[in-house]
Computed example of a mutant assay.
Amino acid sequence: MTAIAVGLRDPRTLVSPEVCDRLVKLIMRDHDMDRELAERTFGQTLAYLVTAAENPGTPMGPTPAVDLGVHSFVLDTPRYIDFCQEYAGTYLHHIPHLAEERDSQPMVLHGTIQAIRAAGFPLDAELWQAEDVDCHQCYACCHNSPKK
């Protein structure tokens, strides 16, 4: 049997350097982040959105930290629409949850984390509030775990 090395997908390759730079600057401006955190946030935003596009019908959602990048991207509509067309073939809607709708969030977040890893993207444990990126049990890595 021959082992095949599989590399991680780099979310920065999903958009042009110009779009990446623009969105990083928007995130920095809108959310008072330094460049390093804004770059990480946008990278995880791209990984999340592509994973959602590749898994239509699967309940997914970002953490509040990653959602900051989603909001900045959605508001830059020309670039967001181009991105959606390229990766989903349609507009990827962003539907915020109300407090009373958050009962299923731990399971949704866990599924999102698993799907991003399965899609081959690196996961930023801090932004996904995952204590253990390699977790496989729901409450072991969910940001709003009742065990925290």
Rank of each mutant, 00 (worst) to 15 (best):
M33C: 09
P146R: 07
N55G: 03
I27M: 09
H93E: 15
Q114K: 15
L14R: 02
S104D: 15
T41P: 04
I27G: 02
M60K: 08
H143C: 07
S104W: 08
E101T: 06
E101V: 00
E39P: 08
T112R: 11
A125R: 11
L109Y: 07
P64E: 14
A118Q: 15
P146A: 03
T77H: 12
A53W: 06
R35P: 04
W128R: 01
K148S: 07
N55I: 00
G7R: 14
L92T: 09
E39R: 14
D10F: 00
P64A: 10
Y91W: 15
H71S: 11
F73Q: 00
P59K: 14
T63D: 02
V66N: 05
E126R: 11
Y91D: 05
A99H: 13
L109P: 00
F73M: 03
D132L: 03
L37D: 10
A65Q: 11
A38S: 10
H93A: 14
P78R: 13
S104H: 10
G120C: 08
A119N: 11
C20K: 09
A38P: 04
G57M: 13
S72N: 09
T77L: 13
V24Y: 01
P96N: 11
R9Q: 12
D124W: 03
H94F: 13
M107C: 06
A118I: 04
V15H: 01
Q44G: 03
V108M: 15
I27L: 08
T112I: 11
D132T: 08
P64D: 14
H143Q: 04
C84Q: 00
I27W: 04
G61I: 02
G57A: 09
V6G: 00
I27F: 05
T51N: 08
P78Q: 11
A125D: 14
H110Y: 15
R79K: 07
M33D: 10
M33L: 14
V66K: 02
V66Y: 01
Y139W: 09
E86I: 07
G43F: 02
K25R: 15
G120Q: 03
G89Y: 06
Q114M: 15
H143V: 00
E100V: 08
G57N: 12
A65W: 01
W128M: 12
Q114V: 12
K25M: 12
R12V: 03
L127C: 09
K25V: 08
Q137W: 08
Q129T: 09
T77I: 13
M60L: 14
H94Q: 12
G43W: 02
T63L: 01
S72A: 15
T90F: 06
G89P: 12
Q129Y: 06
V50M: 01
F121E: 05
V70C: 13
L127K: 09
C20P: 00
H110I: 01
S16P: 03
L37V: 10
A53I: 08
Q85L: 14
A52L: 13
I27R: 03
P11C: 04
Q137T: 10
N55H: 15
P56M: 11
H97N: 10
A130D: 06
A115R: 15
H31P: 04
Q137Y: 07
I116S: 00
G111Q: 13
L123M: 04
C141P: 00
T13D: 14
G57V: 11
M33W: 07
N144V: 05
D134E: 13
H94S: 12
R9F: 01
